[in-house]
Amino acid sequence: MDIIFLLIPLALVLLVVAVAAFFWAVRSDQFEDLDREASRILFDEDTQPSAKEKSKSPEQPQ
């Protein structure tokens, strides 16, 4: 079981990375709108393309 002397410090490094990533996400406003993100997935799948979108040239990628 002496392997834990290597693996646990390794896990700690990953922990620091995870904390840093979380701080970065919070600072860059990714948690600003929790209400909307929860339900966003519901809407995109069944959007019927509007008449206007169909006729629109492909210059504006969505």
Partner: peptide, 26 residues
């Protein structure tokens, strides 16, 4: 959230609008 979706879709469809982001909480 449906309001947000409606607004963003509608605005992004308007000619001349580059980007539109609606924050539902605020």
């Amino acid at each position: 959230a449906a309001c947000v979706w409606l607004l963003e879709k509608h605005l992004n469809d308007q000619a001349g609008i580059h980007r539109c982001h609606v924050n539902m909480s605020s």
